[in-house]
Each structure stands twice: as structure tokens, then as C-alpha cells.
Simulated scan of single mutants.
Amino acid sequence: MSSTTANADADAAVEVTEEAAEQALSLLDGEGLDTSEAGLRLFVQQGGCAGLSYGMRFDHEPEPDDTVTEHEGLRIFVDPASMRYIEGSVLDFEGGLQGAGFHVENPNIVSECGCGESFRT
């Protein structure tokens, strides 16, 4: 898995599997976004029965204080507040009969809700 960073804080940043990168790049392309500038923003927000949940969206460019990494051609943007909760995580894409989607494997989690949609660190 190739990875480059745009700032020094990315040492413990989020990793991305090849499958997740391919899926996200396909979605970015479908939105007509320039993958050399645009990327996937991964963030943590208050919510869910365990207290925190993940959010993802496409952004045209990173914010000045974001940690920016690149994996398999996909740029990932993470703001400093979210990085505290998800550093060292792996973004994966799971497909199957129960539905397909992105999944964050977070080593910082101390508990998750029963449905797996929210967590606590």
C-alpha cells in the first residue's frame, strides 16, 4: 500500500486498504471531482449510543490544519480534533450480502454500541 503525507503529523494517521481506496476513487470520479486535489474527509462527531461516531464526505481540498495522507491515489483529510480519536486506524471497504460499505478499524476504541455504529475511546 503506497502512502505519502502532506505534513509531519501523518506518522500515526489513518491507513487505507487497497479495496477502500479503489471504491472511494470510483465514487470521487463519479462525482466529477479532481482526485489530485479532492479527497475523502474522515471525521469523528458526537452521536450514537456510545458517544462518538464516524463521518465521511468528499471535499474539494483539505483545510490548512488537516493531516493529509495519500493511499493508492486516494487523498485522506483528517482534522486535528478527529485525529485524536482515530490515529492508527484502518479504513476498509466490506462487500457482501448484508450490504457493502466503508468500515473503520480503530485500535483506540474501548467500547462500541451493539450495532457497531458508535464508539468510545
Rank of each mutant, 00 (worst) to 15 (best):
V44S: 00
H60C: 12
H60W: 09
P80S: 07
S3A: 14
F119I: 06
F77Q: 00
C113F: 05
L27F: 05
M56Y: 05
E72A: 14
D92L: 09
C115E: 13
C113H: 07
C49K: 14
Q98W: 11
G114F: 07
C49T: 12
M1D: 05
E63Q: 15
G30H: 12
M83T: 01
H71T: 04
T35Q: 15
G101V: 10
A21K: 00
G48K: 11
I109E: 04
R41N: 05
D65E: 14
L27A: 13
S82H: 03
S82M: 04
C115R: 11
L42M: 06
F93H: 12
A38W: 02
A24R: 00
R75A: 07
T69C: 08
V68G: 05
G101T: 07
E37K: 15
H71A: 11
E15K: 13
P107T: 06
C113M: 10
N106F: 02
A12L: 12
D92M: 11
L52N: 12
S36P: 03
P107V: 08
L91T: 03
M1E: 02
C113E: 06
S111V: 09
G47H: 12
M56P: 02
S82P: 04
A24P: 01
T17C: 10
R41F: 03
H60M: 14
E15G: 06
G101K: 11
V78W: 02
M56C: 11
G101H: 09
F77T: 03
R41A: 06
L25W: 01
S118E: 02
A12W: 05
D65N: 15
H103V: 13
E63V: 07
G101Y: 11
S26N: 11
G116C: 08
M1Q: 09
E37D: 12
S118P: 00
V110Y: 11
D9M: 13
F77K: 04
G47M: 10
D59G: 07
M56F: 07
F119W: 05
Y54P: 01
Q98R: 09
V14Q: 00
I76F: 03
N108R: 15
Y85N: 11
V44D: 00
F58G: 05
T67A: 07
I109A: 10
L25S: 04
S82I: 00
V90R: 10
D29Y: 10
V44A: 03
G32Y: 10
G73M: 11
L33G: 03
S53D: 08
L33I: 06
D9V: 07
E70W: 01
R75V: 01
Q46A: 12
P80N: 08
I86R: 01
E31Y: 15
S53L: 15
S26I: 00
L91K: 01
S26R: 09
P64F: 09
C115H: 08
S26E: 15
D11Y: 10
T17F: 08
A24C: 06
L97E: 15
V104S: 08
F119T: 04
E61R: 14
E105I: 09
L28V: 05
R41V: 00
G95C: 09
Q23H: 09
S26A: 14
V90F: 05
T5V: 10
F58I: 05
E18Q: 14
E94L: 13
P80F: 10
